[in-house]
Write a protein that binds this DNA or RNA. Structure first.
Lengths: 330, 330
DNA sequence: TTGAAAGCGCTAACAC
DNA sequence: GTGTTAGCGCTTTCAA
């Protein structure tokens, strides 16, 4: 036998389908006779009835589905956030449709189109650039959009970010406290908001300490790009410490340091950003700024489920996690 | 103005909605007048029409949506597979609904129920145990189920797995070729099929070489569990090499080796399994059996989209990737 | 408090 | 080759 429909339940309970629908709707508790509700509930239970959300969506125009766009799920920064998103959505009977953009705007646009076709009630986007045409279009079309780990230059969309400013400041002060004065920074690609936030925070922290900064740009937030950037930084300057734009860049630093016959933390200290799952298991264990990935996901989910559209930015605290990749300057 | 419907397009093109539907359906190419097709296509383009998949699903009874269940997205073994799944699904206009089970059967059952409510056309499950009641129920209910990186004891469901047998054999032979005779194995939890496959492969390979085996069980496929198991193994036996059940267990081995004042690979060689993203960046870089995660995802997606239900098992080749964590016995 | 009926957007069976 | 019609499962307005 196929899945029972509401009509089946209604028949079994001896009521009209409309009544059955109401009896199963918790919001209408009190407006339906106790006795009827009970009969319907029992019939539903007995038949193993589960509401067909396709029929419901067609009728209500809402799907309880959120489109989630990440650049690349393989990047260790994202799984934590997605878990947070998914767990929180599910509590409210929402589901997540996942898609990878590979940081390609065209692909992102295409994905958004197919997600819209699926009547997503909103979007959580972790792949937005500082000026993202796709996001802009969604916002002007009146769709619910929440950015995560990203901001737009004009803050027209809601967003959840970590307090990178404080995180970077903590990293710089930590290094300075260990006796480092020549501290470099490896920044990520320019078109991402986190790159700018972190670089500015680095520059300000250095300035506040009366120190000169050394900044090198990496082409992507990946280990190879970090490796390349670290080689440039170490050849060009005499830094004794590096604040990497994220953990993957820090991994690239480790490689560069080794390749130059130096060692970490004896010769060069390194601080990462994110506290990705394996950060504690690297050698040396990576000192890094922890971003509350799971909580960011939870908050993003809450924002996207909220009724009103007024843009709102949530900033969650970061925390410096000191491990073995930073040490006293020799 | 709200999103245009098919009726809007039909009106704009001066045809009946039914005709518009056919004109936009690529399968009916040739059965519709060239001229009509063109007019409808243009109107759709002009209005920015995108099919409403909710309406379509309700009518066709299929949603072009696949439920994807993983134990925990945070585990680095899964993102690669999920990318493969998602990419392949999207080529065929399917989408993936993602959910984490945390290896809890109850949660898994609950998730399956809500995914069924959303009319998923099929399920890809990476969290199944060797004897999984939830999977069994899906199969008997006639739902399309494909397991990935898992098998049932009775092979009543389709599955995509890697050739762990060959992979483990390659690992053992590699170690033996380096002069190791005392080779231990850290196996994962008993209720997963991969645990058994790998342990049996290990035992057979050792036996074929005339060597005695040393097996220790880890409570989970995690670094702490690997750490604990490695300590037990190293205290109980005089092994000079360890074949870990997966990369996370190998990471735990590293920690245990260090803790005992030994070093890898000088004192103890370690081989992992999976070749997770950061395996090459660990110190020492991890020698491991590469599992074709992305391809496994692709194959799983293809199987789940196939029309017929007859269970089918796809085995993809593994490859030993030799890095720095294995060396000649001293 | 419940029944009746309409209709969300789409496609497929049938008629011409 | 195209128009017509019905109906997928659900919720909600309107009546009673």
């Amino acid at each position: 036998m196929p899945r029972p429909t509401l009509a089946d339940v209604a028949r079994a309970a001896g009521v009209h389908p409309g009544t059955a629908s109401r009896a199963l709707n918790p919001d209408l508790r009190g407006r339906i006779a106790e006795e009827t509700t009970k009969r319907v509930r029992e019939a539903a239970e007995r038949l193993g009835y589960v509401v067909d959300s396709v029929g419901r969506s067609l009728r209500t125009g809402r799907s309880r589905t959120i489109g989630v766009l990440v650049p690349d799920l393989t990047n260790p920064a994202f799984p934590g956030m997605i878990r947070g998103i998914e767990d929180e959505l599910r509590v409210h009977d929402y589901a997540a449709l996942l898609a990878n953009t590979d940081n390609e705007v065209e692909r992102e646009a295409e994905l958004v189109a197919t997600l819209k076709a699926r009547q997503c009630d909103g979007f959580i986007i972790a792949s937005a650039m500082r000026d993202d045409p796709v996001v802009r279009e969604l916002v002007t079309a009146g769709d619910k959009v929440v950015l995560i780990n990203r901001l737009l230059d004009d803050t027209t969309a809601s967003a959840v970010v970590s307090d990178d400013q404080s995180g970077i400041a903590a990293a710089v002060h930590h290094l300075h406290g260990l006796g480092h004065n020549a501290i470099g920074h490896i920044a990520g690609p320019r078109d991402l908001s986190i790159t700018r936030t972190r670089r500015v925070a680095y520059a300000q922290s250095m300035k506040a300490l009366g120190l000169r900064g050394y900044v090198v740009l990496a082409e992507a937030y990946t280990a190879p790009a970090g490796h390349d950037a670290a080689l440039r930084l170490l050849k060009r300057s005499r830094v004794t410490a590096i604040v990497a734009g994220n953990d993957m860049l820090a991994v690239g630093c480790f490689k560069a340091i080794e390749q130059l016959g130096l060692s970490c933390p004896e010769d060069i200290s390194v601080v990462g950003f994110n506290d990705m799952p394996l950060a504690a298991h690297l050698r040396p264990a990576l000192t890094t700024v922890r971003m509350p990935q799971y909580d960011m996901g939870v908050q993003a989910a809450r924002l996207v489920m909220k009724a009103d559209l007024s843009p709102e930015t949530v900033v969650l605290p970061t925390e410096l996690v000191v491990r073995a990749s930073t040490g006293h300057v020799e």
